[in-house]
Design a protein around this nucleic acid. Structure first.
Lengths: 196, 196
DNA sequence: CTGGTAACCAAACAAGTGCTTGGTAGGCTA
DNA sequence: TAGCCTACCAAGCACTTGTTTGGTTACCAG
């Protein structure tokens, strides 16, 4: 049942939990659901983890560390403004393809989890994401490739919503590749927010 | 506490429940939450409603009847293809403005509720929404206003995601009007999916 | 053979869940 | 005055929830 031979039992449990959290939501997934899917009793989960919260915490922290590392690479690169926006969009759809459960958890449960002190970093990451995109769009305007007659705050929200909510319908291994989806969205977006 | 003087107690309870369902999700809202917000005990809710499910059922059926009635008006009108698409987009943002809780419930809980036979109509309404948009986009292509080099299925998903997920951040009575938001999105969308 | 460790079981706990039951208070109508 | 109706309370029930505790099994290094 391990995805890879070297995967420890703990990693396997985290992967199982992530799948269930993504599918049914964090609050609606019981520790008995997770244990059943792993073929053990619910109490046995507490040999590996402190609590249900600890599981989703570990899942989200790892994921966001990776994701924002990639954002930073794009920001720090010497690509032109238009290509940076393109890369950021492609990164989103690739992430949905490879880390679907984590994206879904962040999309669906960040609001609920954000109520707890322990998950305060979720709001920080949200602000960071906004900062990344505002930088990209501003650079685009300064470079003269992005229209300046648009409300840039709204443009950010539209892009963020479209690229991340795709996790609701995108299925890895299906007919659509992340590249094809990104191509199509960029065809609409770039013709829309750039002139010429 | 009634929104209008003529509002019956029953209507008031439904409105309170809708607000809580939208904010915390259907499953995460307890009958005690609803009763507390209404200033009564949880058991007293069962004088007005059969079950918690009945409440969300009534909320969703009413909402969808109204919404799809409006879609049908647009489809049946003699407006040109481009204007019909424009109206459909405006309808979404206006609906988020006036019926925010209902939109949020449909967006967040349709997946979970759809597991029960009682809510099978949710999937039907989803298919109906898809049909409406595919008709609008196809008419647009036939009229020569919409580009035909795009994957029309993906275009539909992008539009649907963006216009409805806006319920997550749009706040009625704030700085943004539904018309302004619609203007901005249409500025991006139409320049992107139409030629000329 | 010994000791230690990782993984798990079996059973229970307190808190919270949707819902039921029998009753009560106040107003309207005949 | 009597009967009925709407709206609610008070108390509880059966079930589910996350978590705890003490014990068991298989394996591996010395």
């Amino acid at each position: 049942m391990p995805e890879t031979a070297a995967e420890s039992r703990r990693e396997e449990l985290l992967r199982i939990a992530a799948g269930l959290f993504a599918e049914k939501g964090f609050k609606n997934t019981t520790v008995r659901d997770i244990a059943d899917a792993a073929g053990i009793l619910s109490g046995s989960l507490y040999h590996h983890f402190d609590s249900k919260e600890s599981m989703v915490d570990e899942i989200l922290v790892r994921f966001q560390t990776e994701l924002f590392g990639r954002y930073d690479e794009i920001l720090a690169s010497d690509l032109d403004a238009r290509t940076k926006i393109e890369q950021a969009v492609r990164l989103s759809f690739e992430t949905i393809d490879r880390r679907g459960p984590e994206v879904a958890i962040f999309q669906n449960d960040a609001g609920y989890l954000g109520n707890f002190d322990r998950f305060a970093y979720l709001a920080d990451r949200n602000a960071q994401s906004r900062q990344v995109w505002m930088t990209l769009l501003t650079e685009g305007i300064e470079a003269g490739v992005v229209r300046k007659d648009l409300d840039i705050q709204l443009v950010y929200r539209f892009i963020r919503d479209t690229v991340w909510v795709a996790v609701r319908w995108y299925r890895p291994g299906g007919d659509l590749t992340p590249d094809h989806v990104a191509d199509q969205y960029l065809a609409i977006l770039l013709e829309g927010i750039t002139h010429g």
